[in-house]
Design a protein around this nucleic acid. Structure first.
Lengths: 339, 339
DNA sequence: CGACATTATGACACCGGTGTCAGGTTTGAA
DNA sequence: TTCAAACCTGACACCGGTGTCATAATGTCG
């Protein structure tokens, strides 16, 4: 057999027309059961596979979703944020169970990223994933919507945000963390992260955290906050700067696990003991969290469910159904860094 | 504008034929510079994107590669082997720089996995990634080759293996680990992993390790070996069983970092100190390795280079060039678990 | 000025399926 | 016997590009 078999080849060997082959293979009720059997047999024998390009071209859809991963352009690409990798895993599986393929693409946060997967008919819809500065993206999102591109985002849903989102209840997660520290009477708390509108997730985590403290009559001191992006390195430096400025605290809430891990490193270096001197709580429950020393107490995001919701919501959107922003409940994982 | 713009729309507005539009957009030298400019302008205005399905159908290629990730069907899908996730990252980037899209698919090791991405013209070639039992795959590989499917595998190249591979020099890596332990005079060494033909990577690591010891006149005891697959859990149990059997050793070589991390947990639980009582060396240098307690000495595989080689070799194969199996040099990362 | 090369463009077949329409055969009811 | 409904099948246009071939316009040279 030269080249790949086409439906015409099957038709020839099965003694039917090409139309019938197409119908038979797609289990159309219009085709006789015996004919179908014969067609399937020949198809199997010739190792025939439907040409996706021809099929997609005709039906105008691709059974494929695209996943765009946004990463700060870090020097070391092997250090991809483990939280997103976990999400990638669950999204891939969710796609598979729905019979969709998944195109994966890393995009640089800064650059003018490409979302032409749908325009070019490579994908029926797009999933956007990454801690990004959504302020910068507003315009892009609006233009995508204007072009009627189907897409969903992972991330905090903020007011006036034009896109459809699936996110963890970051506010509630922050409250969980605060309540936990308050139970241990660790009221003198530092926060490492970014509580500005540029990081809506971190912002919501901090708000929930602060509100819980307020409800217990405690005001968090602004002096005990330090800015950090979601890397170990950044968490380390932010914590060091607090220590260097002689700021005291007996607990610490980090906006992400990576930050928390960096913070613990800085604390250890300064001779401050975790959890004896400072209780530490992170956010995400990445795989590393249980291997740190001490193991990290953290707020878990259900990545499996998140992946499913992203895929399901996107598919609904593609089918033209109405979809709401989705909020997933977090849960507290208590480990050695806070007991 | 109802629906998406096609090249006919561009042709209409630019006042040329559809053929010319196609040529202009693909920078054919046959088209006049002024005409090209006009076409590009109209295309941009209408937000035109070439339909990949039509284009692929006609040219019979897809500018897409497929990545099949094999995982033991673990219960918890968020616990994907971090080494492979690092590989996934580098493969994605390598594809992007070569102008290819990447389809990602998780496959269950046990099931009869699908490699019909090329048959269905969804991808031009396939990358296979995973610690698999290659003995089981031999037949499948042969049939893929028979069908002239283009694919490359990550993994040890063994004799009689029909497929094209890119791999780390596992044998050399084993020697590096052994030499390191011998320098510290830790001659009484245990091995946790699987030194059978079913795990050619682990087998090669063990061979190199053993040979280095032999060259120093030391024979490793078979009693000090315990079987494990590449999970933390498995490493933990294997190490526990050694301890339970009163087997003594003052160093330990784990076939992977995950195994090493499990081993350290088991050692700690038994009151055995790392590194004081037992030096531990792992393999892979996954991100977690530097956060363990103590930080893990390990043999690093260059995932960035590995991803590039996989993609480059596959593209050569697709272009019909001759390609050789590729062996990448490992390097030793010394951390607290062995000093 | 005529022969010929060069350049730019349009017409058209083609890639491999899908879906519509028309037609032929069989079955059942009037 | 006649007609219609049910069932099955083939012919054919179509999806939106790409590549080949023919042709027109312009330039070059003996």
């Amino acid at each position: 057999m030269k080249g790949k078999a086409t439906s015409f080849d099957i038709a020839h060997y099965a003694g039917v027309s090409q139309s019938t082959v197409s119908r038979a293979l797609r289990n159309s009720p219009l085709v006789n059961e015996e004919t179908r059997k014969r067609v399937f047999e020949v198809a199997k024998q010739l190792n025939y596979k439907v040409d996706k390009n021809a099929s997609n071209l005709r039906t105008q859809q691709s059974s494929t979703l695209a996943l765009l991963l946004f990463e700060d352009p870090t020097a070391d690409e092997s250090q991809i944020n483990p939280f997103f990798l976990a999400m990638l895993g669950s999204i891939t599986r969710a796609c598979a169970t729905q019979g969709y393929d998944l195109l994966v693409s890393f995009q640089s946060t800064s650059a003018d990223w490409q979302a032409d997967y749908e325009d070019s008919h490579r994908a029926d819809g797009i999933i956007l994933l990454g801690y990004g500065d959504y302020v910068d993206y507003q315009a892009k999102f609006s233009s995508l919507i204007e072009q009627n591109t189907k897409f969903v985002c992972w991330g905090a849903s903020v007011d006036n945000r034009p896109d459809l989102t699936v996110s963890c209840d970051n506010y509630g997660g922050g409250k969980l963390a605060a309540a936990h520290l308050l139970r241990a009477n660790r009221k003198d708390c530092a926060f490492i992260g970014d509580a500005s509108e540029h990081s809506p997730e971190f912002f919501a985590r901090y708000q929930g955290f602060k509100d819980e403290f307020n409800q217990h009559g405690i005001n968090l001191s602004e002096r005990k906050m330090a800015n950090a992006i979601s890397t170990e390195e950044s968490g380390y430096h932010a914590t060091r700067s607090l220590i260097a400025n002689n700021i005291h605290f007996n607990s610490l809430f980090a906006a992400s696990d990576l930050i928390a891990i960096g913070a613990i490193r800085a604390l250890k270096e300064a001779g401050i003991k975790v959890p004896d001197d400072v209780h530490v709580v992170g956010f995400d429950n990445i795989a590393v969290a249980s291997f740190t020393n001490p193991p990290l107490t953290t707020v878990q995001q259900d990545t499996t469910l998140a992946g499913q919701m992203l895929v399901n919501n996107l598919l609904k959107l593609i089918r033209g159904e109405t979809v709401e922003n989705t909020l997933l409940p977090p849960s507290l994982i208590i480990r050695g860094s806070s007991v």
